[in-house]
Simulated assay, not measured.
Amino acid sequence: MKSESRQGDNEFWTEIKMLSKFRHEHLVSLIGFCNDGQERLLIYQYMAKGTVSDHLYKLNRNGRTNPPLSWELRLKISIGAARGLYYLHSRHRVIHRDVKSSNILLDENWIAKISDFGLSKMGPANDSFSHISTNVKGTFGYLDPEYFLTRKLTRKSDVYAFGVVLFEILSGRPAIDIRLEEEQHSLAGWARHCVREGKVDRLIDHSLMGQISPACLKVFVGIAGRCLHTQPHGRPAMADVVMSLELALVLQQNKDSIELRTS
């Protein structure tokens, strides 16, 4: 941790506390830490492929974007990240609070793992807890509008942010992009508009054209759109997100056989 970093000791110890309790295929593994004087270091397993955002729209060290990911690989990454969030929500009552594409890491086999638990909150032992009242923290572009207005943090706040990630994966563009026309600055707002107007094709990454099965796209956009519902009660639980994404993958993998039967 850099001395000028805005993330302080609370975030540092929250990360250690959280990751010391969790072991899951789709969460990063904490190997160790250093707390010596002003030195704050966290040591994780090496994630050879970097972040999801690295492969969607960020420039690499050579000033070029990475080769575009195939749609099937994007689906598998989505499912992995969704399973990680489902594990946090269902097994540990944990709300991540900073779900975004740059916090989803990829190992050498393209397995997605949720990272960065510095802002996470754990709910009370009562599984029926509805929300945690807390100051608003997170990343602009992914913030649940209801949480922003009421300071009531819920599992559905993570679901909203994950909906933004799903549309990043589909569109290959960041959550906020002020280089675009004003109505497209916010990916969440633009995605809701396109879904509402039946213009989903305007959201699709050009590199994916012709790859996506119509049946798969319908299921994927359907669940991603529900995640972005402005009211928490209108959003699915992460269990439903996982099931819908798994169905989308099956439909995509069966694309060729479906096309043969219909031709």
Rank of each mutant, 00 (worst) to 15 (best):
residue 86 Y to D: 14
residue 119 L to W: 07
residue 91 R to N: 14
residue 86 Y to Q: 15
residue 118 G to R: 03
residue 124 P to L: 05
residue 128 S to W: 06
residue 97 R to Q: 09
residue 93 R to A: 08
residue 77 I to Y: 07
residue 109 N to T: 13
residue 115 S to A: 15
residue 96 H to N: 09
residue 111 I to L: 11
residue 115 S to Q: 03
residue 125 A to I: 05
residue 103 N to S: 13
residue 75 L to R: 01
residue 88 L to S: 06
residue 111 I to P: 03
residue 76 K to A: 09
residue 86 Y to F: 13
residue 135 N to F: 09
residue 76 K to Y: 02
residue 75 L to N: 05
residue 103 N to A: 13
residue 81 A to D: 02
residue 111 I to S: 08
residue 112 A to E: 01
residue 122 M to Y: 00
residue 98 D to C: 05
residue 86 Y to R: 14
residue 105 L to H: 03
residue 75 L to I: 09
residue 106 L to N: 02
residue 89 H to N: 03
residue 120 S to N: 05
residue 134 T to D: 06
residue 87 Y to N: 10
residue 117 F to E: 13
residue 98 D to L: 03
residue 95 I to Q: 02
residue 97 R to T: 14
residue 130 S to R: 12
residue 81 A to I: 07
residue 123 G to L: 08
residue 103 N to F: 05
residue 100 K to E: 03
residue 109 N to D: 13
residue 106 L to E: 02
residue 118 G to C: 11
residue 125 A to D: 11
residue 102 S to D: 09
residue 114 I to D: 03
residue 121 K to N: 07
residue 80 G to Q: 07
residue 81 A to M: 00
residue 107 D to S: 02
residue 85 L to N: 05
residue 117 F to K: 04
residue 82 A to G: 09
residue 121 K to D: 04
residue 80 G to I: 04
residue 128 S to E: 15
residue 122 M to A: 14
residue 94 V to R: 01
residue 109 N to Y: 03
residue 113 K to P: 06
residue 81 A to L: 06
residue 77 I to P: 04
residue 114 I to S: 05
residue 136 V to N: 10
residue 102 S to H: 11
residue 86 Y to W: 08
residue 118 G to A: 08
residue 135 N to Q: 13
residue 125 A to P: 10
residue 123 G to H: 09
residue 82 A to H: 04
residue 117 F to V: 12
residue 135 N to V: 11
residue 92 H to N: 11
residue 77 I to R: 04
residue 99 V to F: 01
residue 104 I to F: 04
residue 86 Y to T: 01
residue 133 S to L: 06
residue 132 I to N: 10
residue 93 R to I: 04
residue 97 R to H: 02
residue 90 S to E: 14
residue 124 P to Q: 13
residue 88 L to C: 15
residue 100 K to F: 08
residue 92 H to V: 11
residue 119 L to V: 12
residue 114 I to W: 01
residue 90 S to L: 01
residue 85 L to D: 07
residue 88 L to P: 03
residue 88 L to D: 08
residue 90 S to G: 10
residue 84 G to R: 00
residue 84 G to P: 04
residue 128 S to N: 15
residue 136 V to I: 10
residue 91 R to E: 14
residue 116 D to H: 07
residue 119 L to A: 07
residue 76 K to S: 10
residue 82 A to D: 10
residue 91 R to M: 15
residue 82 A to W: 01
residue 104 I to L: 08
residue 127 D to G: 11
residue 121 K to F: 02
residue 137 K to C: 14
residue 109 N to E: 10
residue 102 S to A: 12
residue 111 I to Y: 00
residue 83 R to M: 04
residue 137 K to H: 14
residue 120 S to E: 09
residue 129 F to I: 04
residue 85 L to G: 07
residue 85 L to F: 01
residue 137 K to Q: 15
residue 135 N to W: 12
residue 88 L to T: 08
residue 85 L to T: 08
residue 99 V to D: 06
residue 121 K to G: 01
residue 110 W to N: 02
residue 85 L to R: 02
residue 131 H to F: 15
residue 100 K to D: 06
residue 101 S to L: 06
residue 119 L to I: 10
residue 121 K to C: 13
residue 94 V to C: 14
residue 115 S to V: 10
residue 104 I to S: 13
residue 96 H to L: 11
residue 132 I to F: 07
residue 75 L to H: 10
residue 107 D to V: 03
residue 125 A to Q: 14
residue 113 K to I: 00
residue 75 L to K: 05
residue 131 H to W: 12
residue 130 S to C: 09
residue 86 Y to A: 12
residue 113 K to M: 10
residue 78 S to M: 05
residue 123 G to E: 04
residue 136 V to Q: 12
residue 77 I to L: 00
